[in-house]
Write a protein that binds this DNA or RNA. Structure first.
Lengths: 110, 110
DNA sequence: CTGATCTACAACCATTTGGTTGCACGATAG
DNA sequence: CTATCGTGCAACCAAATGGTTGTAGATCAG
């Protein structure tokens, strides 16, 4: 269904966003404290534009949100994305547990 | 350190592998039951080779393992990859909780 | 033995990704 | 007002991704 397709691309963006160590590092940092985009850029051995793009990717994945303050843009962690990713992995974990239970049933049946 | 770099590329591969809905579907299915590679290929509107590549990506991410049986290759879910991904998200969740606690402290201090 | 089936892999192609430089524009400082 | 700063975006490039077709090696069926 269409809903699933939307959810799919949302998850695609999410895991895609997490599949880069610079972006994972940004997520960590902005969850602990606040950073401007250039404040983040100063941390990595790459151009400002590259970091700005990373932040944009994280924002589209709801892992980060920005708030304009004067000419600066404050980057903060956004819990929503993390929750969605966790929910999927929890679901998979649940499937594993059911599988384990089924195998136990087979071993003890009859 | 070097260890972190290895861990980084491992996580890159993991989340990258999860960032595709076909691959997520495969993970689900092979956790519930067993499939051959061509058994999986029959489920999707793409070539056998494409599905075989997806399985290879999942295997390198430790989300799936294969076992040769005759001329077939049985694909099963591998719990290891999932655990690693979950561990990272749990870590992030932990950071969020600490942040929440810190904010509560600030509100109640003095 | 012969033919069909299952798998892996190479070569190719279009698109996306992760980086770069350069530019434009709003906000701030002097 | 002017110069600087912070940001976003476009254009470009190399490499990776996700798909294709074709080929070749094992294994199984008859």
């Amino acid at each position: 269904m269409v809903v699933d397709q939307l959810r799919d691309s949302e998850l695609d963006r999410l895991f895609q966003a997490l599949a880069d160590s610079t972006r994972r590092d940004i997520v960590r940092r902005v969850t602990v404290g606040e950073y401007t985009v250039s404040g983040l850029a100063a941390l990595y051995a790459m151009s400002f534009a590259a970091v700005q793009k990373h932040v944009a990717v994280l924002e589209r994945a709801s892992l980060v949100s920005k708030e304009k303050r004067g000419r600066e843009q404050i980057v903060r962690g956004d819990h929503e994305g993390l929750l969605k990713a966790r929910r999927l992995l929890d679901e998979y974990e649940q499937i594993w547990r059911q599988r384990a239970a089924r195998m136990a049933d087979i071993l003890t049946e009859g």
